[in-house]
Amino acid sequence: MSTAVVPERLTYREALRESLRDALRADERVFLMGEDVGRYGGCFAVSLGLLEEFGPERVRDTPLSESAFVGAGIGAALGGMRPVVEVMTVNFSLLALDQILNNAATLGHMSGGQLTVPLVIRMTTGAGRQLAAQHSHSLEGWYAHIPGLRIVAPATVADAREMLAPALASPDPVLLFEHAGLYTSEGDLDGAPVALDGAAVRRTGDDVTLVTYGGMLPTTLAAAEGLAAEGIAAEVVDLRSLRPLDEATVLASVRRTHRLVVVDEGWRSGSLAAEVAARVAEQAFYDLDAPPERVCSAEVPVPYAAHLERAARPAVDDVVAAARRTVG
């Protein structure tokens, strides 16, 4: 199939692009659509060059009509295609929320299993670039509330490279969240396939389990490094899939370390972190030596000013402090 020599080391952005290129080459039913995915090259340059390679039928620039083109993606999936729809950021996806929740997530069940919606919706999420409150939120936890959707969040370059294929192979709608702060991160590819619903242990340790996903993985790994210097061995679990949750991996780790810290860029109240902590409390309560800790974003629309934005987001020191409290 693909004869191009894939370089060993890629950026997150390049990895996503290569996965799209592979998918477009491998399956005639796959097409990409969204605002500025073609001529502009994608608002984060993920799809740069794909229009030239695959043409405007398969790399389709859409008008500013999120509800219509996401809904059209759902319809095209019902009609036998395998659309990849790009929404520029999760804040804008709210204009398509009706289609995502009331159609994509629901049609299968509501039709008594007659319909499936094999659709992938990609979007960016997260803060850190001073884009203020209408471009910076982390709403993937909200989407993970919805039965009928699969939610994945690649945190590494290898996952960015490998997650699209199983997402497209899934008969269910998959939302793929790309953290805006990760696009320029670099990493090596190992070529290993990725399951859509399995968490990954990114660092092993016996003293405390740090559970995170997406854009908070680098922060959490840095915290684990800092903790190691203090003699605290932290295990880092990257959820990868926010729905379904790989409980088994989280529980196995907590049963060994007896301590849990969840790091989540979403707002704390009703967050994914709350869900993870609740499941651990339900199923491993007697294994815990300390109350679970959560490190989340401050409950404020993300502000523009650098110092305020920094204060609003989970930082390495916050994670270190939370982990210390659990072992203290």
Binding site: F92, Q134, P303
Partner: peptide, 30 residues
């Protein structure tokens, strides 16, 4: 990003507000 900004540094270039002048802002959702 200053406190003396018309949105107290919370909005930036895209979110200028000045309600005294009935300027109801910079909305960045098209």
């Amino acid at each position: 990003g200053r406190a003396t900004g018309c949105s107290r540094g919370r909005g930036g270039s895209m979110h200028l507000f000045d309600v005294a002048r009935r300027f109801y802002g910079g909305n960045a959702i098209v």
